[in-house]
Simulated scan of single mutants.
Amino acid sequence: MHVDLSHRIETGMQTYPGDPDVTVRDHATHAEDGYRVDALELGSHAGTHVDAPAHTEPGGATIDEYPLDRFAMDAVRVDCRDLGARDPIPAERVPDADADCLVLWTGWDEHWGTERYLNHPYLTPTAAERCADRGFAVASDTLNPDPTPTDEADAGEPEGFGAHHALLGADCLVVENLANLDRAADRFELRVYPLALGGDGAPVRAVGVV
């Protein structure tokens, strides 16, 4: 069974604060031109997407440097739905599993498009380092493996992009803004083939093969 784990690309969709807005508009129409073409404007980290090391690491690898098989991963899903807004995901949640990717299932996709979506659970630096040590890519149904800055941020939260640095600095890919993880399984194949861009990241059509 194939499960769509992606958010739809559409005008005004939620993005990381400060990232480019997303616009999908008519460029040509059947009525006026006899054919249809949509014009898209979006950032490389819009919607469900994959981060390459070049996103946070100077001189890091870009998306086009990876073979396609890096984007088809044996994934283990970890249930983090007991965690609340801005709760840390500790290192103890990182399993000692034979897998390519750790998928953090927080249920936060239910808040997609709302302010609450920004106040998601996050991976602690120690947990991110444990993932890197075990060679796990990290995927989640949240905006960010690090805390996203908002007015609700706690003074004790880690600042910056510690989880990104730990993972991308160790050549472990990061996948953000998954959806529908309740339809996946505890073990499944995660396919996240990016657009053929050469940069720091790219939108993907994320599919779970259960």
Score class of each variant (00 low, 15 high):
residue 3 V to R: 10
residue 3 V to K: 09
residue 3 V to I: 14
residue 5 L to Q: 07
residue 5 L to S: 15
residue 6 S to Y: 12
residue 6 S to F: 09
residue 6 S to A: 14
residue 7 H to T: 12
residue 8 R to E: 15
residue 10 E to R: 14
residue 10 E to Q: 15
residue 15 T to R: 12
residue 15 T to A: 08
residue 16 Y to C: 04
residue 16 Y to E: 05
residue 16 Y to I: 07
residue 21 D to L: 05
residue 21 D to I: 01
residue 24 V to L: 15
residue 30 H to G: 07
residue 30 H to C: 02
residue 32 E to A: 13
residue 33 D to V: 00
residue 33 D to K: 03
residue 36 R to K: 07
residue 39 A to H: 09
residue 39 A to Q: 14
residue 41 E to Y: 03
residue 43 G to W: 02
residue 45 H to R: 14
residue 47 G to C: 12
residue 47 G to S: 12
residue 48 T to Q: 13
residue 49 H to E: 14
residue 51 D to S: 11
residue 58 P to W: 00
residue 66 Y to H: 12
residue 71 F to G: 11
residue 73 M to E: 11
residue 74 D to W: 02
residue 76 V to H: 09
residue 76 V to L: 09
residue 77 R to K: 14
residue 79 D to W: 04
residue 80 C to L: 13
residue 83 L to E: 08
residue 84 G to L: 04
residue 86 R to S: 11
residue 90 P to I: 06
residue 91 A to L: 07
residue 92 E to M: 09
residue 92 E to F: 03
residue 93 R to T: 09
residue 100 D to E: 12
residue 103 V to W: 03
residue 103 V to L: 05
residue 105 W to T: 04
residue 106 T to W: 06
residue 109 D to P: 00
residue 110 E to G: 10
residue 112 W to V: 13
residue 115 E to P: 03
residue 119 N to Q: 13
residue 119 N to D: 15
residue 119 N to V: 00
residue 119 N to A: 12
residue 122 Y to D: 05
residue 126 T to F: 03
residue 128 A to H: 06
residue 129 E to I: 01
residue 130 R to L: 14
residue 131 C to K: 04
residue 133 D to A: 08
residue 134 R to K: 10
residue 134 R to S: 09
residue 139 A to I: 06
residue 141 D to G: 07
residue 142 T to N: 10
residue 144 N to V: 01
residue 144 N to T: 01
residue 145 P to M: 00
residue 146 D to W: 00
residue 148 T to H: 02
residue 150 T to E: 03
residue 152 E to R: 04
residue 152 E to V: 01
residue 153 A to I: 01
residue 160 G to P: 08
residue 162 G to R: 05
residue 163 A to F: 00
residue 163 A to T: 00
residue 164 H to I: 00
residue 165 H to W: 00
residue 168 L to P: 09
residue 169 G to Q: 00
residue 170 A to K: 02
residue 173 L to R: 09
residue 174 V to N: 05
residue 174 V to G: 03
residue 180 N to M: 11
residue 180 N to F: 10
residue 182 D to W: 05
residue 182 D to L: 06
residue 186 D to R: 05
residue 191 R to H: 04
residue 191 R to S: 06
residue 194 P to M: 08
residue 195 L to P: 03
residue 196 A to M: 09
residue 197 L to N: 06
residue 200 D to G: 07
residue 201 G to A: 11
residue 202 A to E: 10
residue 210 V to A: 11
